[in-house]
Write a protein that binds this DNA or RNA. Structure first.
Length: 693
RNA sequence: GCGUCCGUAGCUCAGUUGGAUAGAGCGUUGGCCUCCGAAGCCAAAGGUCGCAGGUUCGAAUCCUGCCGGACGCACCA
């Protein structure tokens, strides 16, 4: 891990700037620490001299030289050099660095905590939230892969995390399937139950098709939409056959989703059911307070007469209000001025969002506001809780409208200090309203801590759409074909996983003919999951993924299996090393104590070896960057690049047949650390490492 | 019309809060398995970073305008 070194360098620089240069910390530019392009230039680089050149009326080079001299000797730093162009370059004490990292690895292997970075504040990550009326598809997987990784990254940083999955069991989509069963198929609850209990039927797949049929049925005659409205009304009211059927379908489909997600190594702490929010009247409570504060008011005229509405503040309020730490910024004033002008222009047509309809029912936004308030512990009410699934002794909790026998054992849910809602970017506008509602209620801090983790949708490439038999008449001009649950157009998550597993099993058996089929299958599952999950997080979140089956089925190049393969190779080295020399990855540090560090510090091979260790150490820095930017792709890219570096090293610097013991052991040490960091990175992306491939 | 996001190699994409010579994967071409596993490695070819201005010692990155594309702006969720 590299961040502790950053901390030392940064604080020493700040100290020196204030002591030697007379610049108080509040007056210093932010100290950026980067990585030089070539190892010969050092291990860490700081371009601060450029920033100071004008202020101090000196050449960057001269400033860098003075800084280098004034810094003196730093813990863990071998030497500091001022580059001719003005960079301040730091060379680490390689031996000390490696020994410390390996010590960490060893302690962690023993199950001891390495760093105590625990922050008390809990973060809630809400993701998945698939309508419980049909099978999960590839688009849903992107949400879950991103959300699950985000939770893992936060935990990596030492933050307590609660993962919630919001279940919209009272929405129009469940109602549609209820209509399908009752109107198109003439089934009652008993009939639906029989269907879902039939082992020959995949219930979520069945509903997938039924949902598409209902959509067609509506299109046949607009009058039929009244049937849907009636079903929705019944479901919200409760205590009738439609509501019972809806509840049954939602329960069964959620269990299907959980099974699918479990295959992907995606897990939750709590299922939040929208029906419970309604029945426990969370909204009523939030509504009272919003009314009292005037944040929501009754519109008496115009087309929205009779509705309770909230004013929409246009523009990017969240961003422009954020305090900038850019002391050297040039455009902040100008930017604020422009923002004001723009807002004045828009002032006239300020819009209103309906929160409570004129018929008295609450919109989705209203329910979501109440839920968001609850997440922060601001509602003054709580759910009851029930155990939804035993999961072999690790209970999965769900909300409940009524007290249950298990309720007393439930952990304290909600009351978080930060909330990440993983929802596709089409809902950015609604998510902005949530922040506004919090702000309007005087909870500025919580508004600031409400994060919309927005990502773009997954579409299908033309080739894949054709392969699946979808006529792409409407997508001809576009670069991709949109998926549509309504039309039943998309790639089901389980189908995709099954195909990947089949392909991977073939690959494994071709390479490992002696492997029992069950083992080959288990390995193939690990490979398949890595392939999908890596594919879904390697793109930055703002980019539409044009999903292509052929590309996703590929196991070569920038793919999950490539990463796994690198670790498998590294593990193989240690398998042989242990057998022949009794050296293990965990005990490698003990073998190094008495050795000369020449193989680590002298010559080109040493530079390459050291470069691998240094690169591997950046995992914590990358995780920070990923969390800050909400970009799991940063971690994906880091892992891939590290795997590439490892593969290069693997080919260039053999270990088993290296005869010089010190060289062999230092190389092994680099591999031990590298494979540990790769394994950790893969874990953060929800991927495991197979024993063989 | 307004707002948000996107535009980088033939294709798909990175580019870490403005920094040292713009990088990967796929595809193409050519090499490497008596040598820790070739799901790998090495090499070659491939670029007006959408366009035009501006700020800066320095811009793919920040600002303005334009062009092209996606999405959003419901008494749907």
């Amino acid at each position: 891990m590299i961040l502790p070194v950053h901390t030392i360098v940064r604080s020493q620089l700040q100290h020196t700037l204030s002591q030697t240069f007379g610049l108080p910390e509040s007056d210093q530019p932010p100290i950026v620490i980067e990585m030089p392009p070539r190892r010969a230039l050092g291990d860490l680089a700081v371009p601060v001299a450029f920033e100071l050149a004008r202020r101090l009326r000196k050449a960057p080079r001269a400033i860098a030289q003075e800084l280098a001299a004034a810094l003196g000797s730093l813990d863990g730093i071998a030497r500091i050099e001022a580059a001719p162009n003005g960079y301040l370059n730091f060379y680490l004490d390689r031996r000390a660095f490696v020994m410390a990292r390996l010590g960490d690895a060893y302690r962690q292997a023993q199950g001891e905590p390495v760093e105590q970075t625990t922050v008390a504040d809990k973060a809630i990550v809400e993701h998945t939230a698939i309508n419980p009326n049909k099978a999960a598809h590839i688009g849903h997987l992107r949400n879950s892969a991103l959300g699950d990784s985000m939770a893992r990254l936060l935990r990596f940083q030492g933050r307590p995390v609660e993962v919630q999955n919001y279940i919209d069991d009272t929405g129009v989509q469940v109602a549609d399937v209820v209509v399908g069963f009752s109107q198109l198929e003439g089934r009652d609850l008993t009939g639906v139950r029989a269907l879902s209990d039939d082992p020959g039927v995949r219930f979520d797949y069945y509903c997938w098709d039924l949902y598409a049929k209902v959509t067609e049925w509506y299109e046949g005659d607009a009058e039929r939409l009244k049937v849907r409205a009636a079903a929705m009304h019944d479901i919200e009211a409760g205590g009738n056959a439609m509501a019972e059927m809806g509840a049954f379908i939602a329960d069964r489909i959620v269990r299907c989703h959980l099974r699918t997600m479990a295959r992907m190594n995606v897990d939750y702490d709590l299922l939040t059911w929208e029906g419970d929010i309604l029945r426990l009247q969370f909204w009523t409570k939030a509504f009272e307070e919003l009314k009292a504060l005037g944040a929501v008011f009754l519109q008496t005229e115009g087309r929205l007469a009779g509705c309770w509405v909230m004013k929409i503040e246009d523009g990017q309020t969240a961003e422009s209000d954020a305090p900038s730490d850019d002391e050297f910024g040039h455009d902040r004033e100008a930017g604020a001025e422009r923002g004001k002008e723009a807002q004045a222009e828009r002032g006239n047509d300020s819009r209103e969002k309906v929160i409570v309809r004129s018929n008295g029912t609450v919109t989705y936004v209203g329910k979501d506001i109440a839920n968001q308030f609850w997440k922060f512990g601001l509602l003054g009410r709580d759910f009851h809780y029930r155990v939804f699934d035993d999961r072999g002794g690790r209970p999965l909790w769900a909300t409940s409208s009524t007290p249950t026998g298990d309720g007393g054992n439930a952990p304290p849910f909600g009351r978080a200090s930060a909330v990440y809602n993983v929802i596709d970017s089409r809902q950015a506008y609604l998510q902005e309203l949530l922040k506004q509602a919090l702000g309007a209620m005087g909870f500025a801090q919580q508004a600031e801590a409400s994060t919309h983790f927005a990502y773009e949708m997954v579409a299908l490439s033309h080739a894949t759409a054709r392969e699946l038999g979808y006529a792409d008449e409407e997508g001809l001009g576009k670069p991709f074909v949109e998926v549509s649950g309504r039309k039943g157009r998309g790639v089901k998550a389980d189908d995709l996983l099954d195909r990947l597993i089949t392909t991977a099993t073939g690959e494994v058996m071709a390479r490992q003919p002696d492997l029992p089929p069950a083992d080959a299958r288990a390995i193939a599952e690990s490979i398949a999951v890595a392939a999908v999950r890596y594919f879904l997080v390697k793109f930055s979140r703002g980019k539409v993924i044009a999903f292509d089956i052929k590309e996703a089925l590929s196991f070569e190049g920038d793919t999950g299996p490539y990463l796994q393969y690198a670790v498998v190779r590294a593990n193989n080295i240690f398998g042989k090393l242990r057998e022949r020399d009794g050296v293990t990855a965990e005990s490698i540090a003990d073998h190094l104590d008495a050795l000369s560090p020449a193989a680590l510090v002298e010559g080109e091979e040493a530079d390459e070896l050291w470069g691998l260790v240094l690169e591997a150490s950046r995992l914590d820095e990358i995780v920070d960057s990923a969390v800050r930017a909400l970009e799991i792709s940063h971690l994906a890219k880091f892992t891939f690049t590290l795997a590439q570096s490892f593969n290069t090293f693997y080919h260039r610097q053999p270990i088993m047949r290296e005869e010089r013991e010190d060289v062999r052991l230092w190389r092994a040490a680099a591999v031990a650390y590298c494979k540990r960091q790769l394994t950790r990175s893969l874990e953060l992306m929800g991927c495991s490492v197979p024993t063989r491939m």
